[in-house]
Every structure is written in structure tokens, then in C-alpha cells.
């Protein structure tokens, strides 16, 4: 795909999202949430390149969402609060990463899960600070110094989510093409060789881990500031599972996959919940099974096959 065509596609996709939000107003919220989750899924995708599955990335999502909730009183400006919350998550990712990058496969997955569960129960049990399962409501914040009404704030968050999604997707592509990103993929196939080439596989994985925490944190901050209500459920392991789910649903072959997957996931969820209130999870489960059994490349691969294109974006 040529560069110009790609830019047109990205702008077209963004325009489509905005158009849907315009014509079906209640979907604006759903789409913003989907993009926020897509950002976190981008982080999952990065680690999947190294063959590692984090079953605990909800930790960074929830951490940044709570950071935004607590920080909103101190820093009532969206455009400052959001990067601060995301950077906080990246810093946490660095600390946790120094520990977890020593492990692989199920140990890597389970340690991430364990740490996110620790955070979950901290959120749940320390009621005095976190209000337990009731969660915290976010006070209103300004956007670029402006006090916006609910409607304008909604549009601002959606636009911000679109810009962030495009930025991180672009950043990740550059990263994946770089020697560091290629070495990351080498961890999946022949980690020992990296060491015999004088590289530290752990440091390679750590760099990806911190970046993935940053992306999950960005998603979490957008999520918190959009829903304006954060609860411990954000950190529960099923949220992490959901992120991995979306990564596979969208397809691991492209940085567009997470956003495609997240939008499909959220729309299915909303409509399934409206259709059969008690069985939306079951419907999503069947969707996931169908994708894995019949289209393991995810929605992205299906789309590519339909378009007749062969090259990877």
C-alpha cells in the first residue's frame, strides 16, 4: 500500500467513525470506549509479537483510569491530566516490567494476572480511599482551557481518542519495523540467539513492555475520562482477558486490527446486551470461537481477503 493511500484510508476510517457518531448519537460514547480499549489492545499486540500473552494488562488500564480520577481534582485539565495518567502507567510498567520480563509463557501471563489482581483487591478493599466497588466519579475537567458542555465534551473525547489511536498505531509500526521491534519478534522464535548476538532479550522485552503499558495507560485514561466513573472491575482479570480477546478478534497481523476488533467487540456487546440481556457474554464467546475456528487471522485478515489485497499494512 502506498503512503498516500494509507493516509487516505486512515482519514477515511476516522471520518467514518465521526459520521457514525453524528448520525447515531448514542454510539459516540460506545465508539470512544472502543478506541480507548483499542489503544490498550495495541499494547497486548506488541507483547504478542514476542509470543507473550499478558493476562493482566487491565492493571495499566485501571491504574491510569484511577490516576485520572484522583488527579482530576488537582489537575482539572484534560490535556495535561491524560498524559500524566498515561505516563504514570508507563512508570508502573517499568517497575513491574523489570520483574516480569524474566519470565516467559504461562509464568509471564500469570504474573501479570497476579499483579493486576493485587491491584484489583487494593481498589476493592481500601474503601476509605477508593470507595470500593462503588468506584469514583470523576469531576469535570476543562479541555484546552475551555469548560465544555456534555455534548461538546463527548465530541472532544472522541476526537482525542481518534488522534491518539492514529498516533500510537503509527508509533507502533515504526517500532515494529525497527531493529528493536524485529528483535522483539525474535524472542518468539529464537530467544537464545539474541543473547549470542550480544543482545539482552530481557531489555528488548522490557522496552516493549513499557511501551505497551503506556498504550494501555493512555487507553485507560481516555476510558476513565469518557465514562467519568471508574470501578475496580476495570482491573479484574476478565478485563485483561477481554483485551486479549479483542486482539485476536481484530487480528494480530496489523496495527489496525485492535481498533477494528475493539469497535466490533463493543458494538456486538451493546447490541447483544440489548437483545438478550443475560446472554451477551455467551454471544461474544460464540463470536470468538467462530473467529478462532474459521478466521484465525481475525477481522483484519477477513477484510483484506475481501478487498483482495495481499500486502500487510
Amino acid at each position: 500500500m502506498s503512503r498516500a493511500r494509507e493516509v487516505v484510508l486512515v482519514l477515511g476510517a476516522a471520518g467514518l467513525v465521526l459520521a457514525i457518531a453524528w448520525f447515531v448519537p448514542w454510539l459516540r460514547f460506545v465508539l470512544t470506549i472502543a478506541l480507548a480499549k483499542g489503544l490498550a489492545v495495541l499494547g497486548i499486540l506488541l507483547l504478542l509479537r514476542a509470543g507473550q500473552v499478558s493476562f493482566g494488562h487491565a492493571l495499566y488500564l485501571a491504574f491510569a483510569a484511577y490516576a485520572a480520577a484522583f488527579g482530576a481534582a488537582l489537575v482539572p485539565e484534560t490535556l495535561i491530566l491524560l498524559p500524566l495518567a498515561a505516563l504514570g502507567a508507563a512508570l508502573l510498567g517499568l517497575v513491574v516490567g523489570l520483574f516480569v520480563v524474566r519470565y516467559r509463557e504461562i509464568f509471564f501471563g500469570m504474573l501479570n494476572l497476579a499483579l493486576s489482581m493485587v491491584f484489583y483487591s487494593v481498589l476493592e478493599k481500601f474503601y476509605a480511599i477508593t470507595h470500593g466497588t462503588d468506584g469514583i466519579r470523576l469531576p469535570p475537567t476543562t479541555f484546552a482551557g475551555q469548560v465544555l458542555g456534555a455534548e461538546a465534551q463527548g465530541w472532544a473525547m472522541l476526537s482525542l481518542a481518534l488522534v491518539l489511536s492514529a498516533f500510537f498505531a503509527w508509533l507502533m509500526r515504526i517500532y515494529l519495523a525497527s531493529p528493536l521491534g524485529q528483535a522483539l519478534a525474535g524472542i518468539k522464535t529464537r530467544e537464545a540467539r539474541l543473547e549470542f548476538m550480544g543482545m539482552s532479550a530481557r531489555r528488548v522485552l522490557l522496552s516493549a513492555y513499557v511501551l505497551s503499558a503506556l498504550m494501555a495507560g493512555t487507553g485507560g485514561a481516555v476510558l476513565g475520562m469518557t465514562t467519568r466513573h471508574v470501578t475496580p472491575a476495570l482491573a479484574y482479570w476478565t478485563t485483561s482477558g477481554e483485551l486479549v480477546f479483542i486482539a485476536i478478534l481484530g487480528g494480530a497481523g496489523s496495527v489496525a486490527g485492535p481498533f477494528l476488533g475493539a469497535i466490533a467487540y463493543e458494538l456486538t456487546r451493546v447490541y447483544a446486551a440489548a437483545l438478550v440481556a443475560d446472554a451477551w457474554q455467551m454471544i461474544l464467546g460464540f463470536v470468538l470461537l467462530l473467529v478462532i475456528l474459521f478466521a484465525p487471522g481475525g477481522l483484519w485478515a477477513i477484510g483484506r481477503a475481501l478487498m483482495g489485497g495481499r500486502r500487510q499494512a
Binding site: Y175, S178, P179, G181, Q182, A183, M197, V204
Partner: peptide, 20 residues
């Protein structure tokens, strides 16, 4: 890519903004 990765490994891989 295998060969380039080895070349990059010698030269330092910590330049994340240009491709392998």
C-alpha cells in the same frame, strides 16, 4: 532480516525510529 538483525546487533539496536 536475520542477517540484518545480526548486523544491527553489532551496531546497537537502540535506535527505534528507523527501520531494521
Amino acid at each position: 532480516e536475520n542477517a540484518a538483525l545480526a548486523v544491527a546487533a553489532r551496531d546497537g539496536i537502540w535506535s527505534p525510529f528507523s527501520p531494521l
